[in-house]
């Protein structure tokens, strides 16, 4: 038995030195030369190997995501597992959408990012900046001019057209998750097209409240087969999902990608005697006067006065400009 507490004759701090330093030194050599300099991109100089590939992700990762997107397109509404990477932004803040956008963007694209319908919300600003830096793409706030639109919680009011891609950020892609937390179970339900649990839930809503008490992330059935979570968009937006553009959904933390090709049947779940209704606040926009848009509710004083304005800031501004 050796003497307790005595240090053994080992080199101090074993481990750092060659083996420890190797990763980042090598990384700088291997990464593709980026189409921007570290300086003009505002990359953090303190990060070793601070030059990244076009649209940040390495090519192998992009290929993996691209393959998942194509399978998602081939099986509309089915959640394709993908090896989501750890992005330089937190899970839950759009890492899935960012990876899908990174796999789709070309240098010719015009990229728009919205959060809650607005281009200037902090998370939208942050993601837009990320792609300005890493992909050098042109960005826009105009829905009609954008070729790729990444969104959180809204579908733009302006109808999307062929040639556009709408990328949704998805927190929980599994529509059955709140009814059954186990992945092994929900996967089986999708395989068997066993959606009884969902119908029971919706029916219980009606029994208790007289209507389906789901206001956002309202489940849909895609092309008559898969029940799908449309991400936390208000149910007001559900009817827009039958559109001319390609819709891609990315859930980074949950490692799922799914898709809706253009002109695909997307039906909000309902019952014959309780049909789906796409609701909104019963007001007009106080800025542009629109009566057919989804509204933000703004509290304007401490007496509880309220006003309602378009959540889609580009749509609202365009209407105001046209009226001026």
């Amino acid at each position: 038995m050796s003497l307790a507490g005595l240090r053994q004759g080992k080199p101090e701090h074993a481990g750092h030195g060659e083996a420890g330093e190797q990763p980042h030194e090598v990384a700088a050599d291997i990464h593709f030369a980026a189409p921007f300099s570290k300086e003009n991109a505002g990359m953090d100089e303190s990060v070793p190997g601070g030059a990244y590939n076009f649209a940040y992700l390495d090519e192998e990762t992009k290929r993996m995501i691209r393959r998942a997107i194509l399978k998602g397109i081939a099986i509309p509404g089915y959640q394709v597992p993908f090896a989501s990477r750890e992005m330089p932004m937190p899970y839950g803040w759009g890492t899935g959408g960012v990876q899908v956008s990174a796999a789709c963007l070309t240098p010719d694209d015009s990229f728009k990012v919205i959060d809650q319908g607005a281009d200037d919300t902090t998370n939208a600003v942050s993601i837009r900046k990320f792609f300005e830096r890493t992909a050098g793409v042109e960005t826009t706030e105009r829905t009609a001019e954008a070729t790729v639109i990444q969104t959180r919680h809204r579908i733009p009011e302006t109808p999307l057209t062929e040639g556009q891609i709408l990328v949704y950020q998805v927190p929980i892609p599994e529509p059955l998750r709140f009814l059954e937390p186990r992945e092994t179970e929900t996967r089986r339900m999708h395989a068997l097209e066993d959606y009884g649990l969902m119908h029971v839930k919706l029916y219980e809503d009606i029994a208790r409240h007289g209507e389906i008490a789901t206001a956002y992330a309202y489940p849909v059935k895609v092309e008559g087969r898969y029940v799908m979570d449309p991400s936390p968009i208000p149910k007001f937006d559900n009817p827009k999902m039958e559109m001319a553009a390609i819709q891609l959904f990315g859930a980074g933390r949950e490692q799922r990608i799914y898709a809706i090709p253009p002109y695909t049947r997307v039906v909000s779940l309902d019952f014959e005697d309780h049909p789906f209704v796409a609701g909104k606040a019963p007001h007009d926009c106080a800025l542009c006067g629109a009566s057919d848009t989804y509204l933000d509710e703004i509290i304007t004083d401490d007496a509880g006065s309220r006003m309602y304005v378009c959540s889609d800031t580009d749509h609202c501004a365009t209407r105001q400009e046209a009226a001026a």
Binding site: T122, R154, A215, Y216
Partner: peptide
């Protein structure tokens, strides 16, 4: 990292879904 990201994301704007619930 997964846990803290998802936990902390609830401080991001949720005006749209909250408005839907409110109505």
């Amino acid at each position: 990292i997964q846990a803290t990201g998802f936990l902390e994301h609830i401080k991001l704007p949720h005006y749209v879904d909250f408005q839907a619930e409110l109505e």
